[in-house]
Write a protein that binds this DNA or RNA. Structure first.
Length: 882
RNA sequence: GGGCAUGUAGCUCAGCGGUAGAGCACUACGUUGACAUCGUAGUGGUCGCAGGUUCGAUCCCUGCCGUGCCCACCA
């Protein structure tokens, strides 16, 4: 027997789903859920909770439907994030900055990973995520290393990968190139200095505006627009770079925009993307004035060397001012690139890096989505995908950090590159290349972008480069569920690398879930203090309620405004189901696996079984279409709206009365006993179906309740066993429901208290329904407080429902005028509806152009309304004469 | 500058070419045997604005306004 109160804490901890997650069904259709591997440093936030809940719903649902489901967990080594985190901890513990060797730091990070990493996995278990944890993968485990190295070599040998000196976004704190996608533009208040550059052999200065005066040491030209009359005469002249004695040319380039600044722009090819381009066009020298930490180097006058870029800026400005070389300073707002991870201002920097020719990989990736081999859900995300891939730039895959996959490239003494899977192979190549035996090779110091390995996730997890049976079965049969923010980082890379490496798309569907925001619609962030911790929610309301609520909010294409009160709704619903089973248990309902539907005769039982069947069918449609929100509503409506509000109330007399009778042995008869058994069977059967239907969404309580029913098997409800003939009962019960609601409504309207028993009589055309009503008159009594009577006195109100008119006696205290008002109101509503349809039907265009079924519908509506209105009028007339 | 999404009840959101929906909130009434994490009945909406297409528009199209986001540029 269940406890009186529903407390998820008492049973959620008792369940683990490892067993079912690891079951393989070799003969069934394969289905894989490709879990986006969380960072090894990660801890579960609300976005993860949503993402994993949706994935887990799919995994469980597919398992229940008989698929061979692989739901494999993993962790991402998260290069930069992890290295920064461990370094920070080491420094905090007294390790001196820069004192660690590569090997030393890696040892520390591995140690950290083994002891403190992957906490999120336990948190996932708390949320009930049914991954097969026995197949946990790490993006830097041995298999991944092997795969990544092989992939790198393959790409290189196929000509997709090259090393080149290019300008990249450089993070001076990390000391590495970072991805263009990790550049965050922030608008800040800054200054625009107008600096005088002296023109050689010319009286006037040329004024150049810049936000970065410290970079003037790297200037190698001043550009003006050839069409700009102000400067035309200066083109070809030499100017002196302030604070130096270096002269640089004034060049003509359309890049200089006469509208911006002074129209003359300093060109610093080593420190600006656009300037680099200009420099290339004009063959300008490149003067790099900074080191990896963005301190000025030996290419600047001695007093500025070793200064940080901002200190240098201050000093440059001071000196310029002293020399009267600053014409004016403007305050401006401008956007500055920041590193997403480090939070510092980035520097464009010219360095040797490894690049993947992404354009070549992108073409088939674009094609695959265009041809519908891959579908985004919701579809509009495809626009974003196309937009990015159509404008894709070379993918810089090298990072100047230590934690990650070391680039399998070796250099000969002359810089010759040898790319190979092992050092031994590289040596062989070197020997062949140089034609001598003893060659000193040095491995590339850099590691690969973390997304390089993540991009291989669909086949790494399945064992590639080995030819595993999982790879054969699951590749191309998976679903990806993830946030829009990693469409570029992850989804598109998986598609590109997947098609390139496996010659077919990794997955046919990508579900993009919404962003979870706070209740005001703001992005959650630690600094704003508006973070909702899913684990807190789980502790308060239970993981099931959190999952249920997240699913209910997962409408496609709209961000989620999260609020812990919303979880209450979920919790309340689960409480309701808990109490449903408690009620059933108290009334001796046990699950009968041999239930024979053909023997179930009671219309109310038949009706609810039909409702459950409909629920299951609707649920299948919803889940097959990733409508998690619909799914929760469908279950809620059936359990609460149909089963609790009606079925349970309607069958209570049967369960409770007969149990009393059988206790006393008085009035006990076989018919009643059999009926009671049927109702008990149906009740338990329905609850089991609810529990199963709910299992993908809220597995803990489902498992608990099904256990109470003595069922451990969690297969999807089989509703095809329900006889079609049950549909006939729907009319009867629906009329009963309508009558009960109408009587209750009248009661409230006329302020007749529930205690007052009223008499009621029915006028029903349909004999079967009529018989059903009189056979079940005690239900009317119980639910609406009315007693079926042949002759009702003249003090009565009439109620018009579909297919019947009811007369209900009313006490003397009730004001007849009120009743008239009520009837008129009801009647006017009907008239309005009728007139609307009549108006349409009198429109010839409507008759000729609207579809026949719509026209018929309106004709029928007019008839129905007229019939009801007639009955109303009759009643109102009667009331007036009374 | 280019693009995407979004605007429906007080709030959070479904829906959709053919009679505007749910949950919460609110109002009234109720409840000692499944459940107050409850029940019953109600109140509440020119579906952002303006045009157009259509027999018919909340839904499709165009424009505008508001909101959120993405990309690009910025001397």
């Amino acid at each position: 027997m269940l406890d009186k109160t529903f407390d998820p804490k008492t049973f959620e901890k008792n369940f683990s789903f490892d067993m079912e997650a690891s079951v393989r069904k070799p003969k069934a259709e394969p289905f894989m859920v490709l879990l986006p591997p969380p960072n090894v440093t990660g801890s579960l936030h609300i976005g993860h909770a949503l993402c994993y809940t949706l994935q887990d719903i799919l995994a469980r649902y597919k398992r229940m439907r008989g698929f061979d489901v692989l739901f494999q967990p993993g962790l991402d080594h998260a290069g930069i994030v992890t290295q920064l985190l461990v370094e920070k901890q080491l420094y905090a513990n007294g390790v001196e900055k820069g004192s660690l060797t590569r090997e030393g730091l890696l040892k520390e990070i591995w140690f950290w990973k083994e002891n403190s990493g992957g906490k999120i996995l336990d948190q996932m278990k708390k949320l009930g995520v049914s991954c097969d944890f026995s197949r946990l993968r790490f993006t830097m485990d041995e298999g991944s290393k092997k795969a990544v190295t092989k992939m790198f070599v393959k790409l290189y040998e196929d000509g997709y990968l090259y090393r080149g000196k290019k300008m990249v976004n450089w993070d001076p704190l990390i000391g590495s190139a970072i991805s263009d996608l990790e550049v965050i533009e922030k608008e800040i208040e800054g200054s625009l200095w107008h600096i005088k550059y002296r023109v050689k052999g010319y009286p006037d200065d040329i004024i150049v505006a810049t936000t970065r005066p410290e970079t003037l040491f790297g200037d190698t030209a001043i550009a003006v627009n050839p069409k700009d009359g102000r400067y035309r005469h200066l083109i070809g002249k030499e100017v002196i770079v302030p604070l130096t004695d270096r002269s640089i040319p004034v060049i003509a380039d359309s890049y200089a925009d006469p509208e911006k600044g002074t129209g003359a722009v300093k060109i610093t090819p080593a420190h600006d993307f656009n300037d680099f381009e200009v420099g290339q066009r004009h063959n300008l020298p490149i003067i790099d004035i900074m080191n990896a930490k963005a301190e000025l180097n030996d290419n600047v006058p001695e007093i500025f060397r070793k200064l940080d870029r901002f200190e240098a800026r201050q000093k440059v400005v001071e000196l310029l001012e002293k020399k009267g070389l600053i014409e004016k300073v403007e305050s401006i707002k401008h956007k500055v690139p920041y590193g997403d991870r480090s939070g510092v201002i980035l520097e464009p920097r010219l360095t040797y890096q490894w690049f993947v020719n992404a354009e070549r990989l992108a073409a088939p990736a674009i094609e695959a989505v265009k041809q519908g081999k891959i579908n985004f859900i919701p579809k509009h995300w495809e626009n974003l995908y196309f937009e990015w891939l159509n404008n894709i730039r070379p993918w810089c895959v090298s990072r100047q950090i230590w934690w990650g996959h070391r680039i399998p490239a070796w250099y000969g003494p002359d810089g010759q590159i040898f790319v190979a899977e092992t050092e031994k192979d590289a040596k062989k190549k070197a020997v062949a290349f140089y034609g001598k035996n003893c060659v000193e090779l040095k491995q590339d110091d850099d590691v690969l972008d973390t997304w390089f390995s993540s991009g291989m996730w669909p086949f790494i997890t399945l064992g590639w480069p080995d030819k595993t049976k999982e790879l054969e079965r699951f590749y191309s049969n998976m679903i990806v569920v993830t946030g829009f923010d990693i469409i570029f980082f992850w989804v598109s890379r998986m598609i590109m690398l997947g098609i390139y490496n496996m010659k077919k798309v990794p997955f046919p569907n990508v579900y993009i879930h919404s962003l979870v925001r706070d209740e005001k619609g703001q992005k959650m962030s630690k600094s704003k203090g508006n973070v909702i911790d899913p684990l807190d929610l789980c502790n308060t309301y239970g993981a099931d309620a959190v999952r249920y609520t997240l699913a209910s909010l997962a409408s496609p294409g709209r961000d989620i405004k999260m609020n812990s009160r919303l979880v209450e709704t979920g919790r309340n619903f689960l409480t309701k189901i808990w109490n449903v089973l408690r009620f059933a248990q108290m009334n001796g309902c046990t699950y009968n696996k041999d239930i024979d539907f053909s023997g179930i005769k009671h219309p109310v039982a038949q009706w609810i079984v039909v409702q459950v069947k409909k629920m299951v069918k609707d649920l299948e449609i919803a889940l097959d279409n990733y409508r998690f929100d619909e799914a929760t509503k469908i279950i809620y409506q059936c359990v609460w709206g149909s089963f609790c509000d009606w079925y349970m109330e309607l069958i209570k007399p049967i369960l409770q009365k007969t149990s009393l009778d059988s206790d006393t042995k008085e009035g006990y008869n076989l018919q009643q006993a059999l009926l009671k058994k049927d109702i008990r069977d149906v009740t338990a059967w329905c609850i089991l179906q609810f529990v199963r239907a709910l299992y993908p969404i809220s597995p803990f309580i489902s498992k608990k309740l099904s256990g109470e029913l003595g069922v451990t098997d969690m297969s999807w409800p089989d509703v095809d066993v329900i006889p079609e003939s049950f549909n006939d009962s729907v009319r009867k019960v629906e009329l009963m429901k309508e009558a009960i609601s109408a009587i209750r409504s009248v009661r409230q309207f006329l302020h007749i208290s529930v205690g007052d028993k009223l008499n009621v009589s029915f006028e029903i055309q349909d004999a079967e329904i009529s018989a059903f009503i009189s056979e079940n008159q005690e239900l009317l009594n119980r639910m609406a407080g009315v007693v079926l009577t042949e002759n009702i006195g003249s003090r009565a109100v009439s109620i018009v429902v579909s297919g019947a008119t009811l007369k209900v006696s009313i006490p003397n205290t009730v004001d007849i005028e009120n009743e008239k008002k009520r009837l008129m109101m009801e009647c006017n509503k009907l008239k309005k509806q009728r007139d609307d349809s009549v108006a349409r039907l009198s429109n010839e265009d409507f008759i000729s152009k609207a579809p026949a079924d719509v026209v018929d519908e309106h004709k029928q509506r007019v008839e129905e309304m007229n019939e009801k209105i007639e009955r109303f009028n009759f009643i109102i007339k009667g009331l007036e004469t009374a």
